[in-house]
């Protein structure tokens, strides 16, 4: 009833913007453009739409960790909150460039060389670069269309041993196949915290997998997993090797557990919603429902004669 009362009142501009943002932010992987087209025509107010889009697209792009091709063909730049150096500008540490993007169009418009203060110190860069090379090798092997990067998010100016720092490994893979009514994305974020005094490296991972299949229906997968691991602090090359093998190990295990979940689904889990066959293991005896109702003479009632 509350809803019906609300309908009477025209939404304020702020409420409209919030509503449009909600639709945009809830777009499945790779589908914000389609959602924006529909929501724009429903709203029928370009100014309000543009305002909502300018707020929602950056959030969506960063949370989905989309990747955009840089205009000079130096590869893809990931759009994440970890490498956002300025509004609409994202660092690509591998090419030491900063990509300027148009969030709503989802394109990279230009690149500029990164400034010194945007890059980590040579000491940190040695670790970052070594890890980047190992992760890149893993991602090339494991993901047909994966993009990865390694950023320093804490202590990037440390100039030598004895200081703590934190790197973040981002892996993003997307497969957009709207002509087959199917889109999906895999995102993983690995926080690598180096604690030099303990000579330990703590690795924390967050994996998120989404898929949308929408031919004559709307079915979505939303899977999330978090895990943790530890390794010894060693030389940059050895650290990179052990961290990338931790990532590889956990992601492989997770994929196997997803497979197991799917197997379990058909075999057992689905039964808790609806069984394939009745508990009697035969089709329901519609022709003989008399057995269920001893007192009523159903046969007479079944056909309502006009």
């Amino acid at each position: 009833m509350a809803e019906e009362e609300e309908e009477e009142v025209e939404l304020s501009d702020e409420e409209k913007i919030e509503t449009v943002k909600w639709f945009l932010l809830n777009s499945p992987p790779g589908e914000i453009k389609y959602v924006s087209k529909d929501v724009k025509s429903i709203l029928n107010d370009n100014d309000l739409y543009n305002e909502a889009a300018s707020e929602a697209f950056p959030l969506y792009n960063k949370s989905h960790m989309i990747f955009l091709q840089m205009p000079d063909r130096s590869g893809d730049v990931l759009i994440t909150s970890f490498n956002e150096v300025e509004v609409n500008a994202f660092l690509d540490p591998r090419s030491t460039q900063v990509a300027v993007v148009d969030h709503v169009k989802q394109v990279c418009t230009e690149v500029r060389p990164a400034k010194d203060e945007e890059l980590p110190s040579p000491y940190i860069e040695e670790f970052r670069c070594a890890l980047d090379a190992e992760v890149l090798r893993y991602v090339d092997e494991a993901y047909p269309k994966g993009v990865c990067s390694v950023y320093c998010v804490n202590g990037k100016d440390a100039d030598g041993p004895g200081s703590d720092f934190e790197l973040v490994v981002v892996i993003s893979a997307a497969r957009l196949s709207p002509q087959n009514f199917c889109n999906g994305s895999w995102r993983s974020v690995w926080n690598v915290e180096v604690k030099e005094d303990q000579q330990m490296v703590e690795v924390k991972g967050k994996i998120q997998v989404g898929a949308h299949y929408f031919e004559e229906g709307n079915v979505q997968l939303d899977a999330k997993h978090e895990c943790k691991d530890l390794t010894l602090f060693q030389s940059s090359e050895d650290c990179a090797l052990s961290i990338s093998s931790i990532i590889r190990h956990h992601e492989t295990e997770y994929l196997a557990s997803l497979e197991a979940s799917y197997l379990n689904l058909s075999d057992t889990i689905f039964k808790d919603l609806r069984r394939k066959l009745p508990v009697t293991r035969t089709l329901f005896p519609w022709h003989n429902t008399l057995q269920f109702s001893l007192t009523r003479d159903i046969t007479k009632e079944l056909g309502i004669e006009k």
Binding site: A142, Y143, R175, G184, W186, V209, L221, L265, S266
Partner: peptide
Amino acid sequence: FGKTREMVCTLR
């Protein structure tokens, strides 16, 4: 469900 599973396997 099969299609979403296929998608996961395509991604990785």
